[in-house]
Design a protein around this nucleic acid. Structure first.
Length: 331
DNA sequence: TCTCCTCGAGATCT
DNA sequence: CTCGAGGAGA
């Protein structure tokens, strides 16, 4: 559900804004986390779209360039015909006109060709989460396939190696290195991104002595299984179940099942699991803390936090393990 | 002092 | 999404 509001700007033009805080997050279960590395072989990607919001905007151009040991070896490029005409802001930004898109193939065929081109190679891009999300959602929508490739975000690397830059837009980084300027056309921007990626590799060696020394300066990303990663194995929810639509958190070890399985039960009932107690939590399930040396008075921090929230009037209930089973399992 | 964590601020993509 | 501040525990 979205909360959409319309207001008039200083020119009296209506502006529509969407309150993201109430929007349900889009699930991309197979999507990887960005990596920091400088591989020999990879594919640089860039997409142009009708806007920034993946929920309402369409892809109008996709480019992908295959690199082998620092050289371009193959190029994928296509414009994409959107379902509605693009507005003049996007035309002036990118130079792409409705006339140019008239004869372009539609997204269902282009996304398929893109998928075949990239295979399972590592993808590289600038603020590449933006591109990955658009590609992921369109691939899922039209081909029921997830985009599960590993990927590298060049912006993340530039923030680390060039912290004093006034900002970390691609244009700024390209100017800093005096490399090709991006043009808001995807093929140009792929090459601009690639050149910055190469210069950043040199910069890493200059600052740290070697690529490996630079990489080891990054703390390894934790691969903890997050509660958000557990997705429902059914779409057939019983909306009358007390856990439907509720936010559930666990503390301590359950006696009768492992936490992961309990979380799976919750999401299959249409509930949401979190790793911590906060103002959105509706239920905290208390397990056994006897084996946790850090807990002396029998209450975990999650339980203390929950009790404080309840005193403040939060819609939160603390459940024993057995009370939880009573709600979850059929009577 | 060190490590692990949660939470909020800030930034970039079209 | 990413990072860093600040808290809690060891």
């Amino acid at each position: 559900m979205f909360t959409i509001s319309v207001s008039l700007d200083e020119n009296g033009i209506p502006r529509v804004s969407v309150d993201q805080s109430e929007a349900e997050p889009i699930r991309r279960p197979e999507k990887k986390k960005s990596m920091i590395s400088f591989p020999d072989d990879f594919i640089v990607i860039d997409v142009e779209t009708t806007g920034l919001d993946v929920r309402f905007c369409e892809i109008i151009e996709i480019s992908a360039i295959r690199y082998r040991a620092g050289s371009e070896t193959e190029v994928f490029h296509s414009l994409v015909k959107p379902s509605e005409p693009i507005d003049e802001f996007i035309t002036s930004l990118t130079g792409i006109t409705n006339e140019m898109l008239e004869s372009a193939p539609d997204i269902s065929s282009v996304i398929s060709d893109f998928y075949n081109f990239v295979g399972s190679e590592t993808l590289v891009g600038y603020n590449v989460n933006f591109d990955i999300n658009f590609l992921y959602d369109n691939l899922m929508m039209y081909k029921s396939l997830p985009l599960a490739n590993n990927f590298i975000d060049v912006m993340r690397i530039s923030k680390r190696l060039l912290p004093d830059l006034e900002n970390h837009k691609l244009l700024t980084v390209a100017k800093h290195f005096k490399t090709s300027a991006p043009s808001h056309r995807s093929l140009d921007d792929c090459r601009a991104c690639f050149e910055c990626f190469q210069r950043l590799r040199d910069e890493a060696i200059r600052q740290f002595g070697s690529v490996d020394a630079f990489l080891s300066a990054f703390p390894a990303r934790k691969h903890n299984l997050s509660a958000k990663d557990i997705t429902a194995t059914t779409t057939n929810f019983d909306e009358s179940n007390p856990l439907y639509g509720k936010n559930v958190c666990f503390t301590g070890a359950l006696e009768k099942m492992i936490r992961r399985d309990a979380m799976q039960l919750v999401v299959n009932l249409g509930g949401v699991c979190s790793d911590n107690v906060n103002k959105h939590t509706n239920y905290l399930v208390i397990g056994n803390n006897d084996f946790c040396a850090s807990i002396k008075d029998g209450k975990s921090n999650k339980q203390k936090k929950a009790e404080a929230l309840i005193l403040k009037g939060s819609d939160l209930e603390i459940l024993s393990e057995s009370a939880f089973y009573d709600m979850v399992l059929d009577q």
